[in-house]
Design a protein around this nucleic acid. Structure first.
Lengths: 220, 220
DNA sequence: CGGTTTGCTGAACGATCATTCACCGATTCA
DNA sequence: TGAATCGGTGAATGATCGTTCAGCAAACCG
């Protein structure tokens, strides 16, 4: 049977359509995106899309499925352990890198999820909650070990998420240019130190060094 | 002239249309929302909307203008000073309350801003940036005063924003129920303490000021 | 009162959309 | 080689949209 080869080509084209759809959905939004535009983007005729997906809505669903699978794979690939600071730092760097690599997916999720209740529930269950739980569990573990003070993990985990998500949000929703110039490492350094030691100062340094801290107060 | 009274009625109806539009735009998104649905929501005929707004897009623009004005008013009404902890706490409580009072506006801004570049620029300039600058200036001031360590204000200000914005985001984008059960005060307490003192522990564990900060932990 | 103006209505119009389908060239099979 | 099959095409179809407009009822004016 030449089935395998044919199926391979078929799957290849299917992916090309999904990719084109992602592009157009991210640019225009699902409702304003047209099958014509997606077909043009993929370099095929409108009718061809219906040989691969039964409807526009199914195209949307398939796109979400593939996003979920890809995300989940990356989430589960991350180790649960390591020293606290290193773990958090690599987590933040990873996330920001991933967001920046897939700006279309970010924009797509942000603009469409609030409008489609079924999708929202699914994505939340499979990605959002999974990710949050892992972070919560990590923090709870470190609290139990006495390494972190007894903060509320469900709030602290969310807050930490917010500390790096906001940078992507500023780019996507507001089109902030200044944020784009910061490297993931720069952001992670400051954010993780802020999360662990706070803005007042690390518990390790005694509050006697007022003189040494008035240097680069105005950096911009 | 009875002009004033007539104009008053006209303005009243204009606002009613804007309110209905906000409702429908927030539920369906701008592209999928129909003038028919907005008219039905406002209890008037389709044609009537065109006596108040020249087009659907102008309805969108007018809605943004009113959102900007309202937001700006509230931002500028906030004092710039006060003790650091109190200022930040009231800031976080304020913001979360405001987001929760206007879930439609949040959803609307989140889903539509990324899709309309002109709007995005305007809103960013007039609200997003204004808000961020004020927070940055506040932090820079406290750093110069030696009250906060020399962190990078442009990163720290964003991170702090993220720490409270994420709670609204979780509700709006993912439909997270657990977050909705937290009171603004609960969130603010944990977030501000986290921001100022970090997760490892407060510098207040040093023999200075343990007593002055463990009071209003649970207010609701 | 008759006539004019005003604010509103909802059917009608042209445009555009998702979806379908009659048709085409290439490939496969006998 | 001729017939059958297959993947692909893009014009056609019916639905729905934003927008317009001819007409209606109430208010206003002389």
């Amino acid at each position: 049977m030449a089935r395998t080869r044919a199926d391979g080509l078929r799957e290849e084209r299917r992916q090309a359509i999904l990719k084109a759809a992602m592009k157009v959905f991210a640019r225009k939004g699902y409702a304003a995106a047209t099958i014509r535009a997606i077909a043009r983007e993929a370099g095929i005729a409108q009718g061809t899309i219906y040989l691969y997906f039964p409807s526009k809505r199914d195209l949307l669903l398939a796109l979400y499925r593939s996003m979920i699978l890809e995300s989940l794979e990356q989430i589960l690939a991350r180790p649960e352990t390591g020293d606290t600071e290193g773990f958090l730092r690599s987590l933040v760097v990873d996330r920001i890198r991933r967001f920046r690599r897939n700006p279309q997916a970010v924009r797509f999720a942000l603009t469409e999820l609030p409008l489609h209740a079924e999708l929202r529930g699914k994505v939340y269950q499979e990605i959002g909650l999974e990710q949050l739980q892992r972070l919560r569990a990590f923090l709870a573990d470190r609290i139990a070990a006495g390494e972190l003070r007894p903060l509320r993990p469900e709030i602290a985990a969310r807050a930490l998420q917010g500390m790096y998500v906001i940078f992507t949000l500023a780019e996507t929703v507001f089109g902030d240019r200044a944020v784009a110039r910061l490297t993931p490492e720069e952001i992670a350094d400051e954010v993780v130190r802020l999360f662990l030691d706070g803005a007042r100062g690390a518990p390790s340094t005694l509050p006697m060094s007022i003189s040494e801290r008035s240097d680069h107060a105005t950096s911009d």
